[in-house]
Design a binder for these strands. Sequence first.
DNA 1: ATGATATTTCAGCATTCATTGAAATATCGA
DNA 2: TCGATATTTCAATGAATGCTGAAATATCAT
Lengths: 114, 114
Amino acid sequence: MKKTDAVAALAALAQDNRLDIFRLLVQAGPEGMPAGAVAGALDLAPNTLTFHFDRLRTAGLVSVRREGRSMIYAAQFEQMNALLGFLTENCCGGAPCAPAAECKPARKRTKIPA
Amino acid sequence: MKKTDAVAALAALAQDNRLDIFRLLVQAGPEGMPAGAVAGALDLAPNTLTFHFDRLRTAGLVSVRREGRSMIYAAQFEQMNALLGFLTENCCGGAPCAPAAECKPARKRTKIPA
DNA sequence: ATGATATTTCAGCATTCATTGAAATATCGA
DNA sequence: TCGATATTTCAATGAATGCTGAAATATCAT
């Protein structure tokens, strides 16, 4: 990851609502969740939400896909891992001191038992 | 670490010059380095530098101490580790997936051989 | 096609941010 | 004390940010 990307990702996460949004998506897993659900969960105006999604997407932290009339947003775990890697790689003047932090959710969740 | 602190730390790092400054301090180790040395290394105006140091300090990412007429700034590794912890703790919906990333530089470096 | 649902686009506004220049403060050496 | 060095403070300015409201677009059900 280049410094520019790191700054973009950090800036994207450095805002109350966006950090909430991202954490929600991270917890939702790789399948993501529709914009409306996020709006409901965090009580945000839909246009405000679009604005923040855009910033997260530009930073490569989330992806979108359309599903019917819903837009499904999902966290991009690889980008988050790259950011963690970038932050730790400059640690301790090159001496290996930090294990690379990573988050590898299961690709697809088999149906959750009720 | 509370969300507020995380946002503050992320915002502090989400800027070109400050990310450079912080990385430089991280590489300098816990003993830190004088403001002037940072200014020289990154070619920044001294007042601009003070502005950024302030932001980093408010976010708890650096500390200062006076030494003669120099102000020695040092990275606060614990705060950085707390931030990494915060980012990974919300990973994977609570499932343990990421080892806590940490950076623990030696407290004091014994004289470096020439 | 029509109306309803889901989301985005656009214009505007107050706030915050990063930088600059000039002046102030603190410490050291002679 | 005087001058030099190191850093901070203050005021000003242009740019970016986050939010709001109104209108546009896309999809679905009938």
